[in-house]
């Protein structure tokens, strides 16, 4: 193994993954906004209990890819298959109905609201009928506590405002919420980028826990080390095109970093950025 090679040419991904239809698969996926081609040539797949990391610098096309996978924007090139069936999403609802949920960076949480109220916001469980229809408070509290426990979070109190939780914990609440409401595949939009080292580590641990419980995860990040910590496969984007999908044993973290940073472009920058040897003599 000399250099990172795109999947399918040098390292066909294990036959095990093909045994069952992947949760989500894209082939030659692309998206144009009018005449602007924001994304092209993306091929990747993601099965249950797997983590696909999508890496790329700013403007590499990560957010466009999220929007297509989440159903916010329909794709304009290639094919998208969910559970082996070709799909063309018209709205996030289409993606959600197939068990594909997206957790955005802002997490869609209300800081002052208790944890359990946030967990069920917009989909509250009720008992009773007519004017006596009321929130099933006790049941929702228990469900929230149990769902969080699956990710390894034990809260003292699900009644505390969610704003008092740490950034990592809030991320976990958002993931647990998606899973509870039927997600089989969760797309995480840069869940570690706004966090410090400790909190980011916590989020990576939650991702691993969610993966082990059988969830498929698309983990979008620009940090190759975070990706390496939990990823099974790595999709590298650069300037709107895919540089390939790599299996974990087909690439090293250094190669990933180099690839992401633009590889040759960075090498070419070396001499330019280096201190001129004769800087002092010029005077």
């Amino acid at each position: 193994m000399t250099a990172a090679e795109p999947l399918g040419t040098a390292e066909p991904l294990g036959a095990a993954a093909d045994a069952r239809a992947p949760l989500l698969e894209v082939r030659g996926l692309g998206k144009s906004y009018g005449s602007v081609r924001a994304l092209s040539g993306v091929t990747a797949s993601i099965g249950a209990g797997e983590v696909l990391c999508v890496l790329g610098d700013n403007g590499a096309g990560k957010s466009t890819l999220i929007k297509v996978l989440a159903g916010a924007h329909g794709h304009t090139e290639g094919t998208l298959l969910a559970h082996g069936v070709e799909q063309h999403f018209g709205s996030p609802r289409d993606a959600l109905s197939l068990g594909i949920a997206t957790v955005y960076q802002d997490l869609a949480l209300v800081p002052l609201l208790p944890v359990w109220r946030n967990f069920f916001l917009g989909a509250e469980e009720t008992v009773g009928r007519g004017p006596f229809r009321r929130l099933a408070v006790a049941r929702m509290r228990v469900t929230t506590r149990d769902s969080l426990a699956t990710l390894g979070i034990t809260l003292r109190d699900v009644d505390q405002p969610i704003g008092t939780l740490s950034g990592g914990e809030r991320q976990a609440v958002a993931i647990a919420r998606a899973v509870h409401f039927g997600a089989k595949l969760v797309i995480l939009d840069e869940p570690t980028s706004a966090l410090g080292v400790t909190q980011a580590g916590l989020v990576l641990r939650y991702i691993a826990r969610a993966r082990d419980s059988g969830l498929g995860i698309v983990f979008i990040t620009h940090n190759p080390h975070h990706a390496w910590a939990v990823g099974d496969r790595f999709l590298v984007l650069n300037r709107g095109t895919s540089l390939g999908e790599f299996a974990r044993d087909g690439i090293t973290v250094d190669e990933l970093t180099r690839l992401m940073a633009g590889g040759e472009e960075l090498d070419a920058l070396g001499p330019v950025l280096g201190r001129p040897a004769s800087a002092g003599d010029a005077r």
């Binding site: 800081p111 009321r134 929130l135």
Partner: peptide
């Protein structure tokens, strides 16, 4: 009772606390 024990009450808190988030989850 409405504030603490009904869906509408939950939505009132959410709409005032973070309208964008509330909208995102379907309130």
């Amino acid at each position: 009772w409405v504030l603490l024990r009904t869906r509408f009450g939950n939505w009132v808190f959410a709409v005032g606390g973070q309208a964008a988030s509330a909208r995102q989850v379907g309130v």
